[in-house]
Simulated assay, not measured.
Amino acid sequence: MVRNKARLVAQGHRQEEGIDYDEVFAPVTRIEAIRIFLAFASYMGFIVYQMDVKSAFLYGKIDEEVYVSQPPGFIDPKYPQKVYKVVKALYGLHQAPRACQDKHVAEILKKFDFVNVKTANTLIETQKPLVKDEEASNVDVHLYRSMIGSLMYLTASRPDIMFAVCACSRFQVTPKTSHLSAVKRIIRYLKGKPKLGLWYPRVSSFDMEAYSVSDYAGANLDRKSTTGGCQFLGRRLISWQCKKQTIVATSTIEAEYVAAANCCGQVLWIQNQMLDYGFNFMNTKIYIDNESTICIVKNPVYHSKTKHIAIRHHFIRDAYEKKLIQVLKIHTDDNVADLLTKAFDVSRFQFLVVTIGMINP
């Protein structure tokens, strides 16, 4: 409760349950929860109105005695007293300017002087993976981090750039010219497709399904695998993951199993959220393109081949036994989560972008 509740702006004091507040809330909503709401609204045919708010307000008398003091080192000549009694609570409500994805892309192009550059069809060259490149020249670290930060903001609505941005963000300590070229290529790709975004069709089922995949030893720096996963409500993509695994997998099976466990955790969270909408998605389908991983999930015996896998990843088996999920085989060519784990040529990349549910308006 203390962690999720905002504290009073009074030095040395904090709110107490039952006196200052009765409910506990988190001030920030997960982006996946917003996508779930939008997917539900498209399925039901609701009209959704948006208002971007910079801050909320409350103007009313305070029943309790509340005192605040000036920050250390601050002196206001109009109010020389250091301690004040607060009579009314006043916060500001301001409507922020409407922001959209293509506007943010235009700001990136203008900020980094990419308005007149040529566009790119893909994000990363398949034949030139990103490495430390010790012999290359250093680049301005502040410029590099600024470009990465601007692109990370876009990943909330652009799963097509997720893998490339995550790959480039691993070199923020000592970026080289090759890394800067990779980031510039991402921006040139965005210049050609500034309005490409997720499409939530109304005419679609509302069943949940998920896809899990892993790029075994795909990270050239430490040979760790990359986890990829995505979750759909019908044809509506509501969540996706691209993350380098924390362990060094000793086999393809282990890397795929860790990725499947990560996908399972996200599925269970979505299942819990959908209960508030009146949907009980038991036996959610998780598609995996590795037959051995499916066998390990279904096999109740802890044989020697799975002992080296961390116990924390075995909860996927518990979820399977409780019939919260089911694991199904899918061909690698049909696994759309591949978009989040590696680089592809133009034809394969465009196919995955369309399949995952992204279109130009």
Rank of each mutant, 00 (worst) to 15 (best):
E64I: 12
N138D: 15
F25A: 09
L340N: 12
K111M: 04
G12R: 08
V87G: 04
V139G: 02
H104N: 13
Q15H: 09
Y302W: 14
R3P: 02
T177D: 14
R30I: 13
A343K: 07
T284K: 01
V354G: 06
T119S: 10
A261S: 11
D63Q: 05
V248T: 14
L151S: 07
T252G: 00
R7D: 11
A26V: 14
M358Q: 15
S204E: 06
G265R: 14
G73T: 09
A106V: 08
V248Y: 10
R348Q: 13
V141R: 13
V248D: 09
Y302M: 12
R35Q: 12
Y302V: 13
E254F: 01
P159R: 08
T119A: 07
Y79W: 14
Q95D: 03
H308Q: 04
Q81F: 06
P71V: 09
K110H: 15
F344A: 10
H13N: 15
E65R: 08
Q11H: 12
A260Y: 05
D338H: 08
F163P: 00
N4G: 08
G234M: 01
N138M: 14
P175A: 04
I309D: 00
N360A: 13
D22T: 08
E254S: 01
K88W: 08
C242G: 10
K305A: 14
H104G: 03
V53F: 07
V297T: 12
C168L: 02
K110L: 11
F37K: 10
G60E: 09
I253L: 07
M51W: 11
F206N: 01
Y91G: 01
Y200T: 10
V117R: 11
A99G: 12
G228Q: 08
C168I: 03
V213C: 10
V173K: 12
L221A: 15
L352E: 03
Y91Q: 02
F315Y: 15
F37D: 07
V2E: 15
T246F: 04
D76M: 01
P72A: 09
R223H: 15
S212M: 08
A10R: 13
Y189Q: 02
F281W: 11
Q15W: 08
K82V: 10
K184C: 09
V213T: 14
N272K: 14
D338I: 03
P80C: 06
G218K: 00
F46S: 04
I359V: 15
G357S: 08
F114Y: 11
K5E: 11
L109A: 12
K132A: 09
Q101S: 09
R223D: 15
F40V: 04
K82H: 13
A164W: 01
D140F: 05
C264T: 15
Y320E: 12
S150W: 12
Y211Q: 08
G192L: 00
I31S: 13
F74R: 05
I31N: 11
K307M: 06
Y43I: 03
E32M: 14
Y91M: 00
Y257L: 04
T355Y: 03
R185K: 07
F351C: 02
G18V: 07
L339E: 02
K322Y: 14
F163G: 00
K128Q: 06
T341W: 02
I148D: 03
E23S: 11
F114L: 01
H104V: 13
Q266T: 11
Y216Q: 05
F163R: 00
S181F: 10
